[in-house]
Design a protein around this nucleic acid. Structure first.
Length: 296
DNA sequence: GGGATTTGACCTAG
DNA sequence: CTAGGTCAAATCCC
């Protein structure tokens, strides 16, 4: 599914026309469907050799495909183009050069970006398959832990406006609430192959320390409905409700939440999955793709 | 030396 | 007025 070429920043920010968007959605869905079929074949033949790793890669691509489709569809619905921050200088160097009056007066000039392209995940890891650069940390009122602010590493070289905020959950400090704001418009070459979720202490990483600074991820499934194996079912259901009811209101009816929940859970438990159930999940996801395609 | 992080200042939205 | 989001100089680290 690496076949989807993300447009450059301008084309996204300027808004894709309906036909382009439609073509991309169809392309993504077709790709997802093909991958689901590949996965089905793979599973029918048994996961011998490195089949398990391959299956995992295919799964991640399928999930990413649906994620991208949802983004395309949701932004088409709302008609919004998140051009926030457009008033900001995008060129750090020129900002420095223009110095003094101008740049200093503009410091802090920004628009808050919380809009329809915002969603929240609960996860035991702060990592995902993107490269993030931390740009701030704030103590939040009545919050036990500070909130950390990340922007895409490619903000300047590719104009990617994606940001995320990471905050430890109050009640369960093992869980991180990750709010993603904006869609990645950078090219996907920064993404790594999916990897296994690790048990490292992400907060230690956030707070500095000797670990690598670039948050290039482990397999924190990049789908709105990410579920790490340890997150409880109610978290999953909350997230699903949030996604379908708030982020994609008119898409909500497409998804049988339980079907998706089961599917996602099965995908995360690949190692110990019941193959029949897993196959059913793949078919369910494939069905979602068919349904979307039918709508277009 | 260059890229990433830290952190106080700055600014806006509510 | 204040909480929260961002900037950017200083600092860290490879």
């Amino acid at each position: 599914m690496a076949t989807l070429l993300w447009p450059d920043d301008k084309s996204v920010q300027g808004g894709l026309d309906i036909m382009s968007r439609r073509r991309r959605v169809i392309s993504e869905l077709a790709n997802g469907k093909n991958l689901a079929v590949q996965l089905q074949d793979l599973l029918q033949n048994g996961l011998v050799g490195n089949g398990s790793g391959l299956a995992r890669e295919i799964i991640h691509e399928i999930l990413r495909s649906f994620t991208d489709c949802l983004f395309l569809l949701s932004s088409a619905e709302s008609g919004e183009v998140c051009d926030n921050g457009g008033s900001k200088d995008s060129d750090l160097a020129s900002k420095k050069r223009s110095a003094d009056s101008d740049s200093k007066n503009r410091r802090g000039c920004y628009k808050r970006r919380r809009g329809s392209e915002t969603w929240t995940e609960l996860s035991r890891t702060t990592e995902d398959n993107y490269a993030w650069r931390k740009y701030g940390q704030k103590e939040i009122l009545n919050a036990k832990f500070p909130r950390c602010y990340f922007r895409c590493t490619h903000k300047h070289d590719q104009g990617c406006k994606a940001t995320k905020q990471v905050q430890r959950a109050e009640d369960d400090s093992e869980i991180y609430q990750i709010t993603y704001i904006g869609v990645h418009t950078c090219k996907r070459n920064t993404r790594l192959s999916p990897q296994i979720i690790t048990e490292t202490d992400p907060w230690e990483e956030l707070s500095g320390g000797s670990k690598p600074r670039t948050n290039i991820g482990h397999g924190n499934v990049h789908v709105h409905v990410h579920v790490s194996a340890e997150v409880k079912q109610e978290h999953l259901e909350d997230t699903l409700s949030d996604v379908t009811e708030n982020s994609f209101p008119s898409l909500g009816s497409i998804f049988d939440q339980q079907v998706l929940a089961d599917a996602c859970q099965q995908l995360d438990y690949l190692d110990s999955v019941d193959m029949d159930a897993f196959m059913a999940s793949c078919i369910a996801l494939d069905g979602v793709g068919d349904y979307c395609e039918g709508l277009l």
